[in-house]
Amino acid sequence: MAVELKTWKELPIGGVIPGGATPELNKTGSWRSKRPVWDAEKCIHCLMCWLHCPDNCFYTENQKITGIDYDHCKGCGVCAGVCPVNAIEMVPEGGE
């Protein structure tokens, strides 16, 4: 994706971001080399993945996992590691 980069004269003093920075504007999922694939059939909704995810990428509804935020998941694999029922599999990106 083409991003218009600012020159040094256009930046706010001290690298401060007025209005605040939010990851909602900054999709970091492109860093990922492996993606977690969640199996809803196997999942027991213990929320271990939700608890351990360093990027808060598990969507929940009524304390049940509903999906994964691939815009911000960096593929660290912690969720697959802590899942007690192997309901998350790490699949190489770009393979399909």
């Binding site: 600012k6 040094w8 930046l11 003093i13 001290g14 690298g15 401060v16 209005g19 920075a21």
Partner: peptide, 25 residues
Amino acid sequence: DNPSTWGAFAMPDYYFELKRAQQAG
């Protein structure tokens, strides 16, 4: 009322520009 983010990470695409701006000070 006007929140701002301080000390944000700057990658190779912005670090250089920010240091040049510091030199302007």
